[in-house]
Amino acid sequence: MKAPITLFVMALCALPLGCTKDAEATGDGECTSCASCAGDADAGEHVASHDDAGHGDHAGGQCSDCADAGVVEATPTPGAGKGFTLTEVTPISKILASPADFEGKRVLVKGDAVGVCAKAGCWARLKSDEDNSKSLFVKVMDGEIVFPMEAMGHEITAEGILQKIVTPVEKLREIYAARAAEKGEEFDPSTVTAPRISWQLRGLGARWEI
């Protein structure tokens, strides 16, 4: 009789240990620096859209398929409060025109959703107010805010902090190689020679009407 009770007590004692290990392994559960999420959040240049890939690049709200999660560098945003604190909307076009001016700053933006994470609702792409070919990528903490697919084409208001995302060359090559493989195309790694700098809004609050 003592054996199962001893095992039971040992199990209870071991639980916190197991949880700690898990937390260390997964970080804070957030995927703010995931480049395949960040994809083409570039402000100034037009790069290959990752929206189609985005329909399958998230799983279970944890970005488990983002191969480069945690590898890219991103503007740190410590202690950012959640929700809405601003009333003045900054046009997306203004942010995209000079993103460096807004790096690390909290902004409120509005735009039509032209892309939404299909699996976890963890990102949305908001179209610029001036240009049909420009958009701002909004990444939210998985599970905190969930953009529904029905929001496509609807106006989303989001508040957050603009982050600069730097994706190293090696990681870019992996991403582009994977995309090319998906399409059955050839990819020449030597065509990627410099890290990619992109911009995304780390969303802390968002609302929409469907």
Partner: peptide, 22 residues
């Protein structure tokens, strides 16, 4: 349609309610 978007030069995305055309 609700809105249009140009994901890449030469491409067009047309967004209707629960229906997206690329």
């Amino acid at each position: 349609f609700r809105t249009v978007f140009v994901p890449e030069p030469g491409d067009l995305r047309i967004i209707r309610t629960n229906h997206t055309v690329d």
